[in-house]
Amino acid sequence: MSLLELNKVKKIYQQGKIEIPALRGVDLNVEAGEFTTIFGPSGSGKTTLLNMIGCLDTPTEGEIRLNDKKVSDLSRKELAMTRRYNIGFVFQSYNLIPVLTAYENVEFAIRLTDHTSESQMKEKVLKILEEVGLKGLESRRPNELSGGEKQRVAIARALVKKPKLILADEPTANLDSENAAGVVDIMRKMNKELNTTFIFSTHDPMVMKYANRYINLKDGMISADERRV
């Protein structure tokens, strides 16, 4: 059983009278623990695909199964719960809450899922921040952090609740190559240590090489799918 199964997924956006197909039928299986990159030029449907996987959007046609559950059968509440417990998101523009410190931004995510004691929660947040290399910066606000640091906070936020799957949409697009490499390193490290499944999109060939599975998306279809050992 795969963690994620996509079966002939199509997505058509309606813009006025014009129909814009974003995905034209995607079949995909992702196993737990994979570190997958989706590569493709802008407009190839990467974001749409990730949104669909992340239960933020629904396909026009086809079927998505997550954890062997059909996503289209889930109610809005169940979708929210799936996102809450099973999926972590990392965005291109970090999307941190500016009034909260790095620590609080991470804490925010765990508060939604974890109802253990305060001290345990604190321990978890501090540990994950240390793992992404932000020790000592916990009380800084987003505007006091560099781009790379912000993205690490975002990764920590996605990781802290130990989801099965983390989706990252162009996580390195706003970073210079040095920071980009750092961020991907951390993702890879987490993938190995925690066996968290990662799917991230990018158009940066440099980042691509870290992945152990490489999917090329072209005009809404998968044109290549390679695994490397």
Binding site: A80, M81, T82, F89, S93, N95, L112
Partner: peptide
Amino acid sequence: EEIGMMKALGMR
């Protein structure tokens, strides 16, 4: 964007 992020985090 923040609202979107909150929803992505699974907030009701």
